[in-house]
Amino acid sequence: MKILKEFTKDEAILKILQKYQFKTENFLPILLEIQGKKNGLNTETLDYLANELKVEPSLFYGIATFYHFLNPKKKARYNIYLCRDCTCELKGNKKILKTLEKILNLKIGETSPDNKFSLNLTSCLGSCDKAPAMLINKDLYNKLSPKRIIKIIEKL
């Protein structure tokens, strides 16, 4: 399919594509890296990618909406992913969530107006021996308590 749209060359994206040799099996790392660079994966980026790789844009929408850590929405500077699952719930993740909602003034799935924080729930982080746990971008924080949470957020 031909996309009836003119695209301006995006050097940053092309560089990433070259790094992964334009190969279809590298779509996941390509999308993850572009997401980091472009602060999210909007439709234009996905369309441009599809055009460069000569594939249907729907293929990329399909992938970008399937995986939890790929997000067609804009990314914040600090993306918080609090573990939702069983052991963390036994160890009080609800209290942590309440504290986060209060100090960030955000609800689950929201991003702050200054684009500094986003608050998300995620599936098990494999940190059940040190529950409750959360990720902020790529950093793991565990053995959380409301007190610790306040300290962690203050430092960011």
Binding site: C86, T87, C124, G126, C128, D129
Partner: peptide, 11 residues
């Protein structure tokens, strides 16, 4: 791809 809640042995 250890994802089962409660499992962390592979980590």
């Amino acid at each position: 791809d250890e994802g089962e809640p409660g499992t962390f042995k592979d980590r």
